[in-house]
């Protein structure tokens, strides 16, 4: 089993005709993902390396039965693209694009929550989601993850997600699904959504959660784990040595006034029974120890 994405998911790419969308759309297709369509308002009837282009997500759905979308359009067009996908009834919308304004994110997050509760938004500014051996949506290099489980991975950081699944593969440990929730201020899917889904997924027997400084998502996840998660959780929080008040790249990664520090997050997680590694390698070792006892 896996969460949110499997081999039956049919995906339309909004932005497949652009160079980045085309590159990753093709890689996802090679991986085995059902890449069934792309959209472009003026290029309907053409194709991108064999994948047909439709004028809209609704038309793509009509023709192909797609139920998920991957968004590669520029920041200015993301709000429109997300709403188009939701209105067409997509169950999963994965937004890879970075640089989306906060007010757009806050708006479409709340709009979806109110009017399209059956649409799961992932991102923006996320690497996507991979259910190894089944399907891959986004920019994760497929070969770095071993298929089959028993570990579910959820992370705020793209490259640390890759790092984590790669460390697990090196130890011959498989992954059910790896979800990159992204580091933006208003992520469509958060840690708690993924923890709940992994808890309910019979194939997932342990969870790797990778956080970073800033905000309070890790602290909230810790509370959720304490109350609701019975499976073992290993965590790593990036930015242990980041100086306060410095903004480090992500909109998400900023420490201010002693809040959102890696230390506070690690303590909250340990208090919830989570095993916390000081670096990605240590977290991988901790997970290997747990998997050995399953």
């Amino acid at each position: 089993m896996s969460i949110f994405l499997d081999e039956t998911t049919k995906v339309v790419y909004q932005g497949l005709t652009g160079s980045t969308g085309r590159y990753y759309g093709n890689l996802n297709k090679e991986y085995g993902t059902q890449v069934v369509a792309g959209t472009h308002p003026k290029k309907a009837g053409t194709d991108v390396d064999g994948t047909p282009i439709y004028a809209s997500v609704a038309e793509a759905k009509e023709a192909t039965g797609c139920n998920a979308s991957c968004v590669f359009v520029p920041p200015v067009a993301v709000k429109g693209a997300v709403m188009e996908a939701a209105e067409a009834g997509m169950e999963l919308v994965v937004v890879i694009t970075e640089g989306v304004p906060m007010h757009d994110e806050a708006w479409f997050y709340n709009k979806l929550k109110a009017d399209f509760p059956d649409t799961r938004l992932l991102g923006p500014n996320c690497p996507g989601i991979i259910s190894p051996g089944k399907a891959n949506i986004g920019i994760t290099a497929g070969h770095i993850a071993k298929a089959g489980g028993p570990v579910g991975v959820v992370s705020r950081s793209g490259t640390l997600t890759y790092q984590a699944v790669y460390e697990l593969k090196e130890k011959d440990i498989g992954v059910t699904t790896s979800v990159g929730i992204g580091g933006d201020p208003v992520p469509g899917t958060n840690f708690i959504d993924c923890l709940a889904a992994f808890e309910a997924d019979p194939a997932t027997e342990a969870i790797m959660m990778i956080g970073e400084i800033g905000g309070s998502a890790e602290e909230e996840a810790a509370e959720f784990i304490k109350a609701n998660v019975t499976k073992p959780v290993v965590s790593y929080v990036a930015g242990v040595t980041a100086p306060p008040g410095k903004k480090m790249g992500h909109a998400g990664a900023i420490v201010s006034g002693g809040k959102g520090t890696a230390k506070a997050k690690m303590e909250a997680l340990e208090d919830a029974g989570v095993k916390v590694g000081l670096n990605p390698t240590e977290a991988g070792d901790l997970m290997a120890g747990i998997v050995a006892t399953l």
Partner: peptide
């Protein structure tokens, strides 16, 4: 590459 990995590298 990536804010998370860069922070982790600093760590």
């Amino acid at each position: 590459n990536g804010a998370g990995l860069a922070m982790s590298t600093v760590d």
